[in-house]
Simulated scan of single mutants.
Amino acid sequence: MGTSFAERVKERRTELALSQSALAKRAKVSQGTIAQIELGLSQGSGKIVDLALALGVSPEWLLYGKNPPHTLTQSPHPSHSDFITHTNSDMGLKKTFCLSKYWDCDYLDFIKANDESMSPTITIFDDVIFNRLETNKTENGIFVIKRTSGTIIIRRLILDSQRWLYRSDNLDKTRYSDVFENVGDEILGKVIWRGGGNSFN
């Protein structure tokens, strides 16, 4: 792991197989700014949050090396020229559509909803696509979460009195209760698509 801000930016950019210009486009800065940051000539202080989001890490990790991101691997998408699909799913997305949304096709993953906890937003057996680069918690965002028990859930994140709450959209709270985040829970990615016709971006 890099020991400086500049090293961490370059390390993460390389891990994501991004060029300096590609990262610059994601972070809404110039390629020259990224070059200066990686040479240690700039701390990019006004763009820390945008840079962190572009790299899929926390601002604390970029600045201080705290809360390191998990290592990313590319998703096992079968090779199709115009679509991205997954071995565990019957659906696919056009690559041109993903590019129009600035989604990196290599880091989109697929999961099936296994219950009605997010109904009516997401119903049982829906194909769900999530972006593994988007792991920073956002209010009202829907995320795929791996609990400390190993269980994987899909829930809406709500900030409640300085704590994150995993909210179920299902109104039957006796079956699908809202629960608070546990230390050790891992955000796997933000849900961006459900089925074939509902975007969350």
Rank of each mutant, 00 (worst) to 15 (best):
S100Y: 02
W103N: 05
W103S: 11
W103T: 06
D104T: 11
C105I: 15
C105K: 10
C105G: 01
D106L: 09
D106K: 13
D106V: 01
Y107L: 07
Y107V: 07
Y107M: 09
Y107A: 08
L108K: 05
L108M: 13
D109V: 12
I111G: 07
I111R: 15
I111H: 12
I111C: 11
K112I: 04
A113K: 07
A113T: 06
N114A: 13
N114Q: 15
D115W: 05
E116T: 12
S117I: 06
S117F: 03
S117M: 07
M118H: 10
M118C: 07
S119P: 01
S119A: 13
I122F: 13
T123L: 05
I124S: 03
F125V: 08
D126H: 12
D127G: 05
D127P: 03
V128Q: 08
V128L: 06
I129S: 06
F130L: 03
N131F: 00
R132Q: 14
R132G: 06
R132L: 11
R132M: 14
R132H: 02
L133D: 04
T135H: 03
T135C: 12
T135A: 01
N136L: 15
K137H: 03
K137R: 10
E139L: 08
E139I: 11
N140F: 10
N140I: 03
N140A: 14
N140D: 14
V144Q: 03
I145K: 14
I145T: 12
I145Q: 10
I145H: 09
R147D: 05
R147C: 09
T148D: 01
S149Y: 04
S149V: 13
S149W: 02
G150P: 11
G150E: 06
I152D: 02
I152L: 03
I153P: 04
R155S: 08
R156C: 08
L157A: 04
L157G: 01
L159C: 09
D160F: 06
Q162H: 12
Q162Y: 11
R163I: 00
W164N: 00
L165E: 00
L165W: 02
Y166N: 00
Y166D: 00
Y166S: 00
R167S: 08
R167A: 14
